[in-house]
Design a protein around this nucleic acid. Sequence first.
DNA 1: TATGAATGAGCGTTCATTCAT
DNA 2: AATGAATGAACGCTCATTCAT
Lengths: 199, 199, 199, 199
Amino acid sequence: MRREQLLAIAVERFAKFGYHNTKISDIVAQAGVAQGTFYWYFKSKESIALEIIESGKERLLQVIRRGYRTGTGTVQEMVQGSQRLLCDIFQFADENRYFMELLLTGRGEDEAIRQAFANARIEMEEAFKRNIERAIELGMLPESMDLHLRAALLMSLIEGVVARWLFGPVPPSSDLARRTPEQLAAETVRFEFFGLLGI
Amino acid sequence: MRREQLLAIAVERFAKFGYHNTKISDIVAQAGVAQGTFYWYFKSKESIALEIIESGKERLLQVIRRGYRTGTGTVQEMVQGSQRLLCDIFQFADENRYFMELLLTGRGEDEAIRQAFANARIEMEEAFKRNIERAIELGMLPESMDLHLRAALLMSLIEGVVARWLFGPVPPSSDLARRTPEQLAAETVRFEFFGLLGI
Amino acid sequence: MRREQLLAIAVERFAKFGYHNTKISDIVAQAGVAQGTFYWYFKSKESIALEIIESGKERLLQVIRRGYRTGTGTVQEMVQGSQRLLCDIFQFADENRYFMELLLTGRGEDEAIRQAFANARIEMEEAFKRNIERAIELGMLPESMDLHLRAALLMSLIEGVVARWLFGPVPPSSDLARRTPEQLAAETVRFEFFGLLGI
Amino acid sequence: MRREQLLAIAVERFAKFGYHNTKISDIVAQAGVAQGTFYWYFKSKESIALEIIESGKERLLQVIRRGYRTGTGTVQEMVQGSQRLLCDIFQFADENRYFMELLLTGRGEDEAIRQAFANARIEMEEAFKRNIERAIELGMLPESMDLHLRAALLMSLIEGVVARWLFGPVPPSSDLARRTPEQLAAETVRFEFFGLLGI
DNA sequence: TATGAATGAGCGTTCATTCAT
DNA sequence: AATGAATGAACGCTCATTCAT
């Protein structure tokens, strides 16, 4: 209980204010416990950050690994599968927005933490790459483009959309923030498959 | 001279190690001057960071504002124009990689600095939005998709590609880092206009 | 049982690592009990240290007070008596090496503990003084040297020898550590009575 | 100046109260400077302690290395030489009493510091061993006793005498503290060469 | 007897900033 | 323009001790 409470407060503050601007004293004050209590549950400030990243990464990877979940191979099905996957990811992001904020914007921290973040994003990208690979095997996607690049572009799209949707910065006139996960997935997947020129 | 030297060292270290992990004492040591000298040229650590962001932003916006640089309105020309623009951006990124690293990964800093970063990215996105708007007016792009979202997706693509291309993290097997700006622009623009399904 | 176990662990760790470098949490961890249990048996960290010193001092004083154990007064007997006493002390030191280490090297601690150590050593020295006094009365030793100084020199000899024999530091080439208590006593007593010039 | 001032305060407090009971805040308060000033001159608390030990050790070794300073080889000269050496050492101890107190009683500290102390004492003992060796070569001392042990006994004598003379603990009735270095040297050397039985 | 979570004062250290020169 | 010694608030962390169970 206490442990979970401290974890939750830490994710939130790390995401909102950054790692270095989050003091242990802030965390324990918000939890209403003494400074020492933190160190009963966690070895150090770094270790709690690492734990947050690791566990969030695992949960997010589970979502991605479900893949396109489509049987036969029409483009139609491919698009639907991708849309469902994106929707799942957006939902996860919505439910774990502090973690996602950390993951997508968390840089400039200590070396070990940078590493953990970089690692989490690499693993995500590779999970996507495997999905695309499988889609190519099933004949659902053409082989014409470099696999790595495709995965990179896909990740970029998702990272950018999630970041803008949930944490800004968005241009003042944008109503991106008001989209539902479903809407967002539909629009993103349209761009993903058909590009700026649309259908 | 001294001023520029200090600025250059600061961008580099902010980008490499992050704002909080860069001490004034590191900067002056690398420049070979005394601690106090820093404060003759800059008001504070924050102010040098702000200056770096502001000036980098202006230079980058100039690149973007040149726009698609196309006269008539065939799709062919649209694609070529976009490719040229992306290529310019990638070249700028390559020549200003410390600034770009800062811009794309610099988060978790003090509030004023976050704001400056957020602002820079919003202005970039709006510059893109104006480009797209003009392309729609010229009939080069369909009106079918939300303007804001299109700009957001485009920015996401660019940010993601530049970040992976220049600073990693990239999956170990990826050869993204070895692309020339031209190659990268060609591949990105293909995705931009035609999506995952290709031509 | 528990009490004795905790005492034994404490002497060992105090001797090995010093008072301040021994945490209550180390002691209880090694004993396999909870932190709070310590405070059921001892009032505080200081009190367990004091108890260790006090009880060790009493046992050591018993050994010293047995004295030279000689009846008549030949020099021969005097030497033998002294040798036996030293041997007893060395054996005690060997069997209580953690306590001896504490006694001989334990400094830099809190005031009350310093006091207890100082006290123990003073009492030891006075026990020796009484032995020498009795030897003088019996005509076994000349009166020519200051009594206090003789006791001090004797104590110094014993402290130094025991410290080097059991806990080092010894110069690398020295084989002091391999002596038996008997050998050590013989050699020390020779120096004690006849000095560097030997017989 | 500041550096020397801080060093002097540190030796004194380390000797009087022990390493762990000396806070940086105590040192700087006594020097009348801010906490941070300490770190302008020294890397850490440990490093100042190490520097104190190292420099004191060197100065003391210089005294010991002057050796017996005797030419020909009568016992008389040997005794006189030894007495002069002891006298020098006692004078050094008197003039550097805080350092000597540290050296003779400083234990229970952090590992690096323990090591430095142990090392200093080993080097001292070896300096004495070389002196004895030379005396044997010159035929001034019999070969009958183990060299290492003789050096150890000599060191023990000196350590014990200095410790009692300058910092106690001494039995209340002892007037040891009032001896001059010369007196102390004379009495110690008598014991050193002729033992408890005197001449 | 025994537990172990909780406490909180206090420590060593860092570093942006100031200022007399 | 430049120095570099000095500042001091603030941080992460430690650990002897307490106390409800």
